[in-house]
Design a protein around this nucleic acid. Structure first.
Lengths: 210, 210
DNA sequence: GCCTGTGAATCCATTCACAGCT
DNA sequence: AGCTGTGAATGGATTCACAGGC
């Protein structure tokens, strides 16, 4: 069926990164780009770019380079970001509020269709994006009726596990966790963490020795 | 002087991750923990935990385990997160606003002392945290007089490079970038990216094949 | 017995270097 | 000539497995 010579995780991450300058190049009407130039823009090795792409097919023309528009389309297809994804968010604190309004989600076709919080004061609030904050008890039904595919956890650390459990019990198979906690997850679900405190601590470590 | 057998990046990242359950354990008055248990809590291999720590010394007792409190203190010291760091933020959109108010920064001793935006409508606004939004033109002077050590970029993608350049020209050596763009940086500065769109695209890739 | 610290072995990812196409 | 695609070589990081100490 599909060839599956197991793709390295870093390759997947980088494909998303390659997509960004490509979008700019499309806007700028640049038609062709070499692995060398693209690598430069993303701060990676040119051979890396070629190898990453080669996992999925032959997208370039020898002696010429890659057609910008085709390459971008191909990458989006590989990453399955050529369609809209239905997502919800749990935890409507400062961060949660900022995320539902964030343009970067919209731009990449992620659509928030529900928002949840455990704080009674929050429940029932109408958000500027049009959604109304619902209680945790609604998670199961709402996820199922709206066919929500991805859940975003933006609660305080202590509530993160409960939030994730509710989402996954309701059938959500992928969770993006903004809480600085490690979430226990069943085999069948995927969790990725966005933890800026880890990144900061990393920064200061390097800052000190230089 | 200090032994410097070059520490792997992933090790640094993991140290920050180990610190978190350790903080909980301290609160729970647990005194000793084994690499096995700690590894479990962070979803890594026990040998990994031991090796990561061994880069920096011998923190454990054979046959017993690690003293929770001591280990946490040691890790904080290694990561230089045993002191307060002075930071500023550029870009006061939804995300920027959420970040200055975010508890996770405070909890880990990162102190916001300035906030900047390029939008005239924003400048002069008083934030709930007590800061007043300043124009880009103030970056250089403010960074220098307040001795700001780390800059956070939370602008729209198009403005991110300018924001970073202003910070680095002013003497900031470390930048945490929330904009989904690759920033060009001089050798002497460190940039880390927190890019949730990349993480999301990664999620959906895996979501599709399973 | 239990658990750490660590060389050796394995696994994975990156980079090199060149064959092959335009 | 220019640039991709890719096997081979290199460089890292993870895991194993056990010696050493409690």
């Amino acid at each position: 069926m599909t060839k599956a010579p197991k793709i390295p995780e870093p390759t997947i991450e980088r494909l998303a990164i390659y997509a960004r300058p490509l979008e700019e190049l499309v806007k700028a009407k640049i038609e062709v780009i070499s692995s060398e130039k693209l690598a430069q823009m993303c701060d990676v090795n040119p051979a890396q770019v070629r190898k990453d792409l080669a996992f999925f097919g032959e997208f370039g023309v020898r002696g010429v380079g890659y057609n910008v528009e085709d390459l971008l389309r191909s990458i989006k297809k590989i990453l399955c970001s050529d369609r809209t994804w239905t997502i919800c968010i749990v935890g409507m604190g400062n961060l949660g509020m900022a995320l539902v309004d964030n343009d970067n989600f919209k731009k990449r076709n992620y659509k928030f269709v529900a928002a949840f919080d455990s704080n009674p004061e929050m429940i029932g609030r109408r958000l500027s994006c049009g959604l109304t904050v619902q209680p945790f008890d609604d998670i199961e039904k709402t996820v199922q009726t709206l066919g929500i595919e991805i859940g975003i956890v933006a609660t305080r650390p202590l509530d993160a596990q409960q939030a994730a459990d509710l989402l996954m019990d309701a059938g959500v198979k992928a969770v993006l966790n903004f809480a600085p906690t490690h979430l226990r997850t069943p085999e069948c679900c995927i969790v990725k963490n966005v933890d800026f405190t880890v990144k900061l601590e990393n920064l200061v470590y390097h800052l000190e020795k230089l």
